[in-house]
């Protein structure tokens, strides 16, 4: 299946922090890189994919396991590093 190259642990953070941390991490990655984000705030399951759609990144997988949720994404053309 999808191979997540990079990992981001944002457990116990509340929205919008998981989105902010994802955004900041993506800025350090290159187009095509994969990132797996693990969170405990279920709101991230709607916020991170929304953030990806808006900013041109591809969501490869989302899921829940116990108290945790995860999102796997592939960095799009523009990693947003301008900011």
């Amino acid at each position: 299946m999808t191979e997540a190259v990079h990992e981001l642990d944002v457990r116990r953070m509340l929205c919008p922090m998981p989105v902010i941390k994802t955004q900041n991490k993506v800025r350090t990655l290159a187009t095509g890189d994969c990132l797996r984000v693990v969170c405990t705030d279920p709101g991230a399951l709607s916020d991170i994919p929304a953030w990806c759609r808006i900013n041109g990144h591809q969501v490869l997988e989302t899921g829940e396991a116990g108290n945790e949720v995860f999102v796997v994404l592939r960095v799009g053309e523009d990693n947003g590093a301008l900011f």
Binding site: C15, P16, V19, I20, Q23, P42, G43, S46, D47, A50, W51, R53, I54, N55, G56, G80, F83
Partner: peptide, 18 residues
């Protein structure tokens, strides 16, 4: 359960930096 700024960005078709 939606982040308003992200939701607005999607409606407007703009990128969003948080």
């Amino acid at each position: 359960k939606r982040n308003n700024a992200l939701w607005v960005a999607e409606q407007l078709g703009i990128k969003m930096h948080i």
